[in-house]
Simulated assay, not measured.
Amino acid sequence: MTPKYCSTLLDCIRSGLCRHESGVGIYAPDPGAYKTFAEIFDPIIESYHTGFKHTDKHPATCFGYGSDFPNLDPEQKFIVSTRVRCARSVEGFPFNPCLTKRNYKDLECLIKKPLRALCNEHAGSYHTLGCMDSDDIQKLVDAGLLFKGKNRFLKSANALRYWPTGRGIFINKTCTFVIWVNEEDHIRVIALEKGGDLGRVYERMIVGVESLAHSLKFSRDARLGNLTFCPTNLGCTIRASVHIKLPLLASNRRNFLELAKKHHLQVRGTLGEYSQALGGIYDISNKRRMGLTEYEAVAEMHKGISALIEAECEESRKTRK
């Protein structure tokens, strides 16, 4: 068992035992699980994060500047929207399977305080999930702004206990900056907008997470970086993604996926993992989050998406000959 919260190996692998279709099938019920059960976590981390070995050390946080990344699609031919998010866990609390009902309420209260101080384009309002109208919840889910409460993988991992206690969402006035509270991780900071201006979206996310860091202390490990519920999000925790149409390139799925893999990109359906590409729109993001800084993760994604767009343009040139 883990020393502080007494989590067991079963708590870690429960979801994978119940859901054989899981991509990874393992979660950390508390921060100590990554050390107590390193024998099972380390090989999975190395496999998912492309070679991050148990002897490697994640680098210090370095966000850099969003202005370094030009618009990926200034003519708006391919990219529908851009989103950048990062996850954070508040130090002193376990993860979902070990959180009590009181913990959820305390966490929500703690996180809400710095949200009131957000200003300018980040200013907005917080909504407790349990106090929201079901129609309003569905509208936000349909718009891609709010998490779904019926995730079967999280349920199998005992991550939906006491739902919706302590869960909520902060939204700015223009719906381009969102913070999820106590869904999969304690905090998900998300910036988004239509089009392909990755630099602007990334900069908005940076300001948001650094504002929270002034008031909250986050869980971090000297080797693994930022600690999260799922090992796929460890390290810098950055997921920079686009909704993009690449009809010619995607017509040859094998080549499409091979090119994405070459650039360490993850290809998902329109609505995320385990979904289909509705209307030919794919959700494509960086896959690696360990062994590289936040800035390097976004730079890798920017380079990869640029390569996919160039490949699509090359296919278009071939068809015109």
Rank of each mutant, 00 (worst) to 15 (best):
G304A: 12
Y27H: 07
H122R: 12
L271Q: 11
K77F: 08
R239I: 11
E300V: 05
Y274I: 11
F41W: 06
L234V: 01
E273L: 00
Y126R: 04
F170R: 00
L115R: 03
C12T: 10
T319Q: 15
L118R: 03
E21Q: 11
L118H: 09
F256V: 01
T36D: 00
R220H: 13
W180I: 02
L246W: 00
L17D: 05
I305W: 00
L249W: 04
G291W: 01
G16I: 05
R220P: 06
R161Y: 12
A307E: 08
L154M: 15
S81N: 11
S15G: 10
R320W: 06
G144S: 05
M290N: 04
G166N: 06
I137N: 05
D185I: 09
E273V: 08
C236G: 07
D106G: 13
T50D: 07
K4V: 09
S15V: 09
G23H: 09
L224F: 02
T237D: 08
R288M: 13
P231R: 10
P94T: 05
E203M: 11
H186I: 08
Y162V: 04
R116F: 09
E312M: 11
K173A: 11
L160E: 08
H302E: 00
T237W: 02
I281T: 07
C86M: 10
A222P: 12
L227M: 12
I206K: 02
R188C: 01
L278P: 04
Q266N: 12
R253G: 10
I40Y: 12
K262L: 09
C18Y: 15
T237I: 07
S211I: 12
C62A: 15
K155H: 15
S22Y: 01
H263N: 10
G279M: 10
I171N: 00
G304Y: 00
P3V: 01
M1P: 11
C175I: 07
I309R: 07
N120Q: 12
K148A: 13
I238F: 09
Y295A: 02
I171M: 08
Y295Q: 03
F170V: 03
L308Q: 02
Q76S: 14
C313H: 00
E210M: 14
E183I: 01
T176N: 04
I187E: 07
K148V: 14
A28Y: 09
G130M: 04
A311M: 05
L246V: 06
E210A: 14
L248C: 04
D106Q: 15
L9H: 05
A123C: 11
H243P: 01
C109V: 08
L234M: 06
P247L: 04
A87M: 06
G64D: 02
F170T: 01
C98P: 08
A87S: 13
C62Q: 13
A222N: 15
T293D: 01
S156I: 07
P231L: 12
R167Q: 14
